[in-house]
Write a protein that binds this DNA or RNA. Structure first.
Ligand SMILES: [Mn+2]
Ligand SMILES: [Mn+2]
Ligand SMILES: [Zn+2]
Ligand SMILES: [Zn+2]
Lengths: 157, 157
DNA sequence: ATGAAAATGAAAACCATTATCAATAAAGAT
DNA sequence: ATCTTTATTGATAATGGTTTTCATTTTCAT
C-alpha cells in the first residue's frame, strides 16, 4: 500500500507554494477538514471543526482561507438557498470531481451525483456549443441543481 | 384588438384574492413594475422604481410583497452571485415562461433563453428520470445557469 | 359608513461576510 | 540557530442586504 499513511507533505501544499502563498497551520487545518468530509460545509461549520483542534484559529481566517482556496480553484463555493455559503473540495489527489447537486427543499440535504455525468457531458457540451453560437457567449462554467424532495421527505405526511 | 387597453382588473388580482390576500396599492405597483421589465431587478431596484410614483411606499413592503409573490409562484427569486437577490415575473397572462440563464462574469449581464435546444431538453428529461429513480428523489424544479463572457466582454482589451 | 383583521412604514435588529490594524509567524538569508 | 522581511493572523468594528417589531393605516365584508 504505497503512501497510504506515509505522512508525506500533503498534496495540496505544493499548490499553495505554487501560488506564492505560505503554508500555515490554519490553512493546513482548514484543507484538512474539507478533505475529510463529503458534506457541504459552511464557514462556521469549518470553524467549529477546526476549533476542536486549534481553538486559537479565528473565523476571519476561515473566511480568508476559503476565499484563497476558491481563487486557487481548490474549493467550490455554492449557494443552496439557505443564507450561508457552502464549501466543498473541488478535487482530490486523483483529480477533479466536478458534479451536480440534488437539493431537498424539505430538509436541505444536498446529494452529490457524478453518476450521470458521462451521459450528460455529451449533451451538455452540445448545449453549451449551441448557446455559445446563438448568443455569442463564451461559456466557462455551469451550475446545475435539481430541487425536490428526498426519500425521507416524501414520506412525511 | 380585444382588451388591449381595456383597463380591466389586471390578471394578477385574481391570484392574490385566490390566496386570500388583499389587493393593495403597493402590491399593485410592485407587480406593475415587474410586469413592465424584462430585467432581473433587485428589491432596491423595484423600490426605486415604485418610489417614483408612490414615494410613501417603503422598502420593507417591497421585501414583504416579493416574498409573497414568490410564495404564490408568481415571481422567481434568483441569486446570480452579486450579493443581492434578483426577482423576475414567473409568468404573464399567457402562462409560464420558464427559462434558463446565461450570466456574464464580466459585466453581470443576465441573458434569458427559453428556446431550449433539443439537446438541453433531452439532457433534462434523461437526467431527471435517472436521478429520480436512482436516488428516489422527487424532482420538482431545476436551476440551470451558464457562466461566461458575453459578446461585449470578450472584446475588452 | 363601520369595524375587525390585514397590511404598511419607520426604525431597530439580524447576521453572514469584510475591513481594519497591531501582533505574530513563515521562510529565506546569514 | 538567529535575524529580517513581509505575509498572515485574530480581535474588533464595520458593512449591507434582509427581517423583526410595533404602532398606525388601509382594505373590504357587513
Ligand atoms: Mn457537492
Ligand atoms: Mn430570467
Ligand atoms: Zn429531505
Ligand atoms: Zn458581459
Amino acid at each position: 500500500m504505497p503512501g497510504r499513511k506515509a505522512k508525506g507533505a500533503p498534496w495540496w501544499q505544493g499548490r499553495f507554494r505554487g501560488y506564492g502563498y505560505r503554508m500555515t497551520v490554519p490553512r493546513e487545518a482548514i484543507v484538512g477538514v474539507l478533505s475529510e468530509t463529503s458534506k457541504h460545509l459552511s464557514a462556521e461549520d469549518i470553524f467549529l471543526e477546526v476549533h476542536k483542534v486549534y481553538p486559537s484559529i479565528g473565523l476571519t481566517t476561515i473566511y480568508r482561507t476559503l476565499e484563497l482556496l476558491v481563487q486557487m480553484g481548490l474549493v467550490f463555493k455554492f449557494d443552496f438557498g439557505d443564507k450561508r455559503a457552502r464549501y466543498e473540495l473541488a478535487e482530490g489527489p486523483k483529480g477533479k470531481r466536478h458534479h451536480h447537486h440534488l437539493v431537498c427543499i424539505g430538509c436541505d440535504t444536498v446529494i452529490d451525483y457524478t453518476d450521470f455525468i458521462d451521459e450528460e457531458i455529451e449533451l451538455l457540451g452540445q448545449t453549451e456549443k449551441g448557446l455559445s453560437k446563438k448568443f455569442n457567449f463564451k461559456i466557462t462554467n455551469h451550475l446545475i441543481q435539481f430541487y425536490g424532495l428526498c426519500k425521507r421527505c416524501q414520506n412525511k405526511k
